[in-house]
């Protein structure tokens, strides 16, 4: 009986080897493993055998059954692999053809820069706020210690709106700096204050490679008890480190802005010559990045913040210059001519 089983197995496996399609395979399965197959018959008749034979025949028959089933599965897999391989060989494409394009949009480099700068200050607790582009003389100038005949006005040539002046707040103008928002924040908020104010600013100036009648700035303000110039330096240094990268030299020097005292200007090591001196930096090795200072006590007083109790710092910088320096753009007008061949590079 056992030798019959072994014979059966050999015959079955030989036959299985020759099979090449699924139909034959099913026939084979019915023949050797089906309900009516010899093997099933033997297994079913085990009970009729002698106790001694029953165990040995049963073991062999079950083993052979498992072997045949495994071989069948293997064969099935083999066959499928061969089929798929054949079918795959037929599926042939030119992988060098371009992919299906997804629409690609981009943000304007000015927006990207404002976002980047705002995020850096945001992480130091400064919140983005905003104010009007069309502003009263008061917030743009008076509240910031820039009275009508202040020489600082000459460098901020103003575009005036053709509307009757307000009794208290003076004529209407296009803000010449985002510091006007600082004036509004000082008037409307109570310390602790930490804000940044990005936005459009305007100058009454002829257009050339370094001037446009409209450009962008970001101003910032921190007011609380105990804010010092050391905090100003630390905060702005941290900004420079994160925007321009670790290891870039930064210095703070004395400068004058009517709404701060002491006044500060921050410069970074020139991005082109790394401090050796070149045309971009006027051979100084330094690039002026922003103006800052401790908020002038009279500016705080005008906003009803007591300068004996509170102190603060303010800063302001041009946005457009940052991508110009970073990408080597030499004409500011590019930002506003909106040529897609320019914009799609950012």
């Amino acid at each position: 009986m056992i030798s019959r089983l072994e014979q059966l197995k050999l015959g079955a496996l030989k036959e299985l080897d020759l099979i090449t399609d699924a139909k034959e395979m099913e026939l084979w399965r019915v023949n050797y493993l089906g309900k009516k197959s010899e093997l099933t018959g033997i297994l079913r008749s085990l009970s009729s055998l002698a106790v001694a034979d029953r165990k040995s025949v049963g073991t062999v028959a079950n083993r052979i059954r498992t072997e045949l089933e495994d071989s069948l599965n293997k064969k099935k897999c083999n066959l499928r692999e061969i089929q798929l391989a054949a079918a795959t060989r037929e599926e042939n494409i030119d992988v060098t053809l371009p992919g299906r394009p997804l629409p690609t949009g981009r943000l304007h480099p000015i927006t990207k820069t404002i976002n980047e700068v705002s995020e850096i200050f945001n992480s130091m607790g400064f919140q983005v706020t905003s104010g009007p582009d069309v502003e009263w003389n008061y917030y743009n100038f008076e509240a910031l210690n820039i009275h009508d005949d202040h020489p600082a006005r000459d460098v901020m040539s103003t575009s005036w709106v053709d509307i009757k002046a307000d009794k208290n707040r003076g004529p209407m103008l296009l803000r010449t700096h985002t510091t006007s928002v600082t004036a509004r924040v000082i008037e409307s908020q109570k310390p602790p204050i930490r804000v940044v104010e990005p936005g459009r600013v305007y100058r009454y100036e002829a257009t050339d490679a370094t001037h446009t009648p409209m450009f962008h700035q970001i101003d910032g303000l921190a007011v609380d008890k105990g804010i010092t110039m050391a905090d100003l330096k630390g905060t702005l240094y941290e900004f420079a480190r994160r925007f321009f990268g670790e290891g870039r030299g930064v210095h703070f020097r004395c400068d004058y802005f009517p709404f701060v005292e002491p006044g500060v200007e921050m410069a970074i090591e020139c991005l082109v010559c790394n401090g050796r001196g070149c045309r971009l930096c006027g051979n100084t090795g330094w690039l002026e990045i922003l103006g800052a200072g401790m908020v002038h006590p009279r500016v705080l007083e005008r906003g009803n913040i007591d300068p004996e109790t509170y102190s603060g710092f303010a800063f302001g910088m041009g946005i457009d210059r940052l991508p110009m320096l970073r990408y080597g753009i030499d004409d500011i007008r590019q930002f506003y001519s909106n040529d897609l061949r320019f914009l799609s590079q950012f």
């Binding site: 930490r194 609380d224 804010i227 110039m229 703070f252």
Partner: peptide
């Protein structure tokens, strides 16, 4: 104060990060 600071040198002023109260954050 500015006179004193600029003659002694702004570089002599230390560099610290704001340690004052963080204003409540209400993003616009």
């Amino acid at each position: 104060i500015e006179e004193v600071a600029r003659i002694i040198g702004y570089d002599k002023i230390p560099t610290t990060l704001l340690g004052t109260t963080l204003p409540s954050q209400n993003p616009e």
